[in-house]
């Protein structure tokens, strides 16, 4: 399964001006540059449509422009720490943390569950504090991944993806027992 977010989907200290539409265009560009967009313009158009329906600014300096769109084929998250912050319509002021969340139109409930975890994390102070103090793109990934509680890829039961025929050779599979960190 494609990672929701990778380091090339993160921008720290993005100066994209004061207009949220420019921020959305830029974030869609980030998705495109990361090779995750099937249509950058479609993402922009669908995110704009959502934005015109209702503001996506949340209390606490967060914005989550989002859409279901044919412009991506896998759920994709792009993150930018905005400097200067940009007004996304939240009552308490502009946003310095912006996530563009693009989900395929074919999205199933699994996507929603993951996005729901993100949605809930977003309104927690510890999560936003960690995003604000992240020193690198990798830090951001770690924070987000932790918040989503994404387990090590447990993608069993995917027979459709062609389990290599007769490849039941024990020992070939890398049984990477993660060294349980004694945190």
């Amino acid at each position: 399964m494609t990672d929701l977010i990778t380091t090339d989907l993160v921008r720290l200290g993005a100066d994209w001006g004061a207009d949220k539409h420019d921020v959305i265009r830029a974030l869609a560009g980030v998705v495109d540059d990361a090779g995750r967009a099937t249509s950058r313009d479609q993402i922009v158009q669908d995110a704009f449509a959502r934005e015109s329906n209702a503001a996506t600014g949340l209390p606490g300096g967060i914005a989550i422009p989002h859409c279901r769109t044919t412009g991506v084929s896998a759920p994709t998250l792009a993150f930018a720490r905005l400097d200067p912050p940009v007004d996304f319509g939240a009552a308490d002021g502009p946003a310095d943390l912006a996530f563009l969340i693009a989900a395929p139109t074919e999205g199933d409930v699994d996507h929603l569950t993951i996005l729901g975890k993100l949605a809930r994390a977003l309104v927690k102070r510890a999560f936003t504090d960690a995003l604000r103090s992240a020193a690198s793109a990798q830090d951001v990934i770690d924070v987000v991944t932790h918040a989503l509680g994404v387990p090590a890829p447990a993608t069993t039961a995917a027979p459709a993806s062609g389990a290599p025929s007769g490849a039941a050779n024990p020992g070939a599979g890398e049984t990477t027992d993660p060294p349980t960190p004694a945190s």
Binding site: T56, I64, L112, G116, R120
Partner: peptide
């Protein structure tokens, strides 16, 4: 017509989920 739940757009599942 537009409907909100606790102030967020009810036509966005993501916004609804932010309510927790």
């Amino acid at each position: 017509s537009d409907v909100t739940i606790n102030g967020v757009d009810a036509s966005s599942s993501l916004m609804i989920m932010t309510l927790g």
